[in-house]
Design a binder for these strands. Structure first.
Length: 402
DNA sequence: AAAAAAG
């Protein structure tokens, strides 16, 4: 960290926060950001992207007393997390980030650690698009002095759902500014959409080393998936898990079912009030809940250290979504596990993912918790190294193709 | 198709 050109007080803060040796992306990106030009930073999940832009931008803010930084994120949870890391790294109080996101009115009391500073004093603002625009329109925040902007999960922010808001938001910033796009994925359409916001960006995309995420699929028909998820969870009680579902309703229903069978499950989706969302995050991060049942709200960016495994109840349609979901485990080089439950009619989505990622997933034998008792049935094998096709269908009835 | 994001 000390050789990258950062102010000594920043490397000291980094060290204090447990960041000593820089990750490859940090070594590559920090000097480029310090240089002041636009950048496109593409690095795997859990590789330390947040610090890789926060540290050099803080350095630039120390050198230029009038400038400010805006970090945009696609979810409230991610905005909170980035702001929290910013607080850890800030060498002076005025560099402590101010978090801006919706749902704050739902707070029963002042949210811990969030929105606890004044936007006038803060020189780093971290927020979600809607709330940033809202505050701007009500003159409660002035983005014109933001000479640096980070589009975290930039491909997501460039997607059609955020397009209008981003097109309204970005022109409000200083016209002469540094724009940094960050993500683990940048499909061509998103890169194209980002073009008008980036001026001759330098692309920083280090060779992706071997992933520390062990991936597998299990063929299970839809009706048996909850019991299969339970079996996977019980087989590794030491691994806290995020279980991804396709809808808010499914999240609630699955969490309820798992709880009924004795598992400590919290639920997280965008239909909950912000206090409930915060509570779910807190319960899971503290370990009071060992399972987090979530929609794709939780797919991107969230860095919860003790996530040992990710379960996809259904293969996601977009390969990018798969990459981000499984990236909630195996952070910072730790080993993580990702298991996707796949019904016969979902095999094409699975193939699409395998093709996009140039991987061939290991097939696990189908395993179902017994419906009457919450006891796992454990296969005699412990190996993930089974050959594909060996146990397709498993002991479930052979599902018909749709 | 569903997810999130303003109130």
């Amino acid at each position: 960290m000390a050789t990258l050109g950062l102010a000594p007080r920043l490397t000291a803060m980094a060290l204090q926060a447990g960041l000593d040796a820089p990750t490859p992306i940090q070594s590559r990106a920090i000097p480029v950001i310090l240089d002041g030009g636009d950048a496109e930073i593409i690095a795997p999940t859990g590789a330390g992207k947040t610090a890789c832009y926060l540290l050099p931008l803080m350095h630039l803010l120390l050198a230029r007393r009038a400038a400010r930084v805006l970090v945009v994120a696609p979810t409230r949870e991610l905005a909170r997390q980035i702001a929290a890391m910013g607080r850890q790294l800030a060498p002076t109080p005025e560099l402590r980030p101010f978090a801006v996101y919706g749902g704050a009115h739902e707070e029963a009391e002042a949210p811990e650690g969030a929105q606890d500073d004044t936007p006038e004093r803060a020189r780093i603002i971290v927020g979600t698009p809607g709330r940033l625009l809202d505050l701007t329109r009500r003159d409660q925040i002035d983005l014109a002095s933001c000479r640096h902007v980070v589009l975290d999960e930039g491909d997501r922010l460039m997607s059609p759902e955020f397009r209008d808001e981003m097109h309204d938001l970005l022109p409000l910033l200083a016209p002469q500014r540094q724009t940094i796009l960050v993500s683990a994925t940048l499909p061509p359409a998103a890169r194209e959409a980002s073009r008008r916001f980036l001026y001759k960006p330098q692309t920083i995309a280090p060779e992706t080393g071997k992933t520390s995420i062990r991936q597998a699929i299990m063929f299970v028909e839809a009706a048996q998936k909850p019991l299969a998820a339970e079996a996977v969870l019980r087989r590794h009680p030491d691994r806290n898990a995020i279980v991804f579902v396709a809808s808010r309703d499914e999240a609630g229903a699955l969490a309820k079912q798992l709880r009924k069978r004795g598992l400590k499950a919290a639920v997280l989706h965008g239909g909950l009030t912000q206090p409930d969302r915060n509570r779910a995050m807190q319960e899971f991060a503290s370990g009071r809940a060992s399972v987090l049942v979530a929609t794709d709200l939780a797919a991107r960016g969230l860095d919860i250290e003790q996530v040992g495994q990710v379960i996809n109840m259904t293969p996601p349609e977009q390969p990018e979504t798969y990459v981000h979901r499984i990236g909630r485990t195996g952070r910072a080089g730790r080993v993580g596990w990702a298991i996707t439950l796949c019904a016969m009619n979902e095999r094409s989505a699975m193939r699409k993912i395998e093709t996009a990622l140039s991987i061939k997933l290991t097939v696990l034998p189908t395993e179902i918790s017994t419906p009457e008792r919450a006891t796992p049935r454990v296969e005699p094998t412990t190996s993930l190294a089974r050959k594909r096709g060996r146990s397709e269908g498993g002991r479930s009835k052979s599902p018909k193709t749709a």
